[in-house]
């Protein structure tokens, strides 16, 4: 690996650590209770930055995309999807079991790794569904997960719509902040000879992580913990 590759390697290794200082903790509730609308933006952003399941799915999506225009299109589809369910489900107090929805989010990570590795054609002998539609559908599911998290906080109902919108805005900001280094690293590595093993390693990891996340959430869902 040349010097540029070494720097990139270190960069990608450190990538998951960017959120260490922003771990979402139980202190969020106190923050939401005492802070204003900024607190909702902050908690939304930190939740996205530390929500490894959301980030892993986005990593999988970015791998597939080469042009900036495409990235904007797919991320917009994901954003519209999760905004619809996040805002409407929270406003209507509709909630799905958090473990169940997180298990499905885990499956979305698995799906993306599976698709990127070309395993639909290789193993199932079928073409994968249209990615843009799938990203939108998974966006809806991720939004339900985000909503369940927001609803788990005890939030004063006064001005609830603004609070939800601020949380959603925070999620978008967190998403953009997370995507910048991800897109940068993947695009730089794409130009290098070591890209192929890196691509395979990362997408194999997405499959493993997706299985792990799904199993972990289902374990809790069925009360086996």
């Amino acid at each position: 690996m040349n010097q540029r590759g070494t720097i990139l390697g270190i960069g990608i290794l450190l990538l998951p650590l960017i959120a260490l200082g922003h771990d979402v903790s139980g202190g969020d509730r106190a923050l939401l209770e005492n802070g204003g609308l900024w607190a909702y933006i902050y908690v939304g952003a930190t939740h996205m930055l530390t929500g490894y399941d959301h980030l892993l799915f986005l990593v999988g999506v970015i791998f597939f995309l080469r042009e900036f225009k495409e990235i904007v299109k797919f991320i917009t589809a994901f954003t519209i999807g999760h905004s619809i369910t996040l805002i409407s489900a929270t406003y209507l107090s509709f909630s799905v079991n958090e473990y169940l929805i997180d298990a499905i989010i885990g499956l979305s990570v698995l799906y993306k790794g599976f698709e990127n590795m070309g395993l639909f054609q290789k193993w199932l002998k079928v073409n994968p569904p249209h990615l843009l539609n799938m990203v939108f559908v998974f966006g809806l599911i991720h939004g339900l997960g985000l909503s369940a998290r927001l609803q788990s906080f005890t939030v004063d109902q006064e001005g609830i719509l603004f609070k939800i919108l601020c949380f959603n805005l925070g999620v978008e900001l967190g998403q953009v902040l997370a995507l910048i280094p991800i897109v940068y690293v993947i695009n730089l590595w794409r130009q290098m000879s070591s890209y192929e093993p890196f691509f395979k390693a990362t997408n194999t990891y997405l499959i493993i992580a997706g299985i792990g996340l799904t199993g972990y959430q289902l374990w809790h869902f069925f009360g086996l913990s």
Binding site: I12, L13, P16, L17, A19, L20, D23, V24, S25, G26, H47, T50, Y52, E98, Y99, R149, S152, P197, F198, K200, A201, T202, T204, Y205, I208, A209, Y216, H220
Partner: peptide, 23 residues
């Protein structure tokens, strides 16, 4: 709390190790 099921740093360390090995 549900969110704190897997501490992020544990997740990050394991992830990095797995990606390195696979790479």
């Amino acid at each position: 709390d549900h969110e704190e099921g897997i501490p992020f740093y544990i997740w990050a360390i394991i992830s990095v190790l797995v990606i390195c090995v696979l790479y």
